[in-house]
Amino acid sequence: MPDQPHSDAPGYELFVGLLTRHEAALRRFVRTLLPAWGDVDEVMQRVALAAWKKFNQFDPATEFLHWALVIARYEALAFRRAMGRDRLVFSEDFLEQLAEEAENETELASREELALETCMAKLPPARRELVLKAYSIPDQRDLAAAIGKSPAALYMLLSRIRQELATCIERTLKEEAAL
């Protein structure tokens, strides 16, 4: 694989540093455009590779995230097109609209990420563990079985916790804004 990046290539460290810093933001962006986590992960890999291939075109005086988002948008839409009609996704022009709006929200998004950390810390430990587990195991049904709940009950519980977190994030951001 000639295009595969390797650690002694020039700019590698800078690239890794930038991508590491903005990885969460890129994932949020791609997640907004694709409904399946498997697809999101696939596109994230493509974005990373494409960004590395084009990294010599990146002007360090400009913002890396903005530059990488353009790549992410392109990769997500290309992926969607390749999936064609056999996968259930939003129509392309609607995705364009979402992408455009999401690109203008990166600052809000990173404040949300920080607020989420605070809000997670406020959750009762058992619920915090549950969310972390649910988001890190491949099949949530296994988690349901492990804790002796039906999948439906687990989904309900998770969606309630997510809602609580969303409310907490909103409140935290409002409080910050009021400071």
Binding site: A24, R27, W37, E112, E113, S136
Partner: peptide
């Protein structure tokens, strides 16, 4: 609201994956 939900979903996965 939809974008907010997808961001939360992604952030949770980032946190969970990071810890794991």
């Amino acid at each position: 609201e939809f974008r907010r939900a997808t961001r939360l979903d992604a952030n949770l996965r980032t946190i969970a994956a990071g810890r794991e």
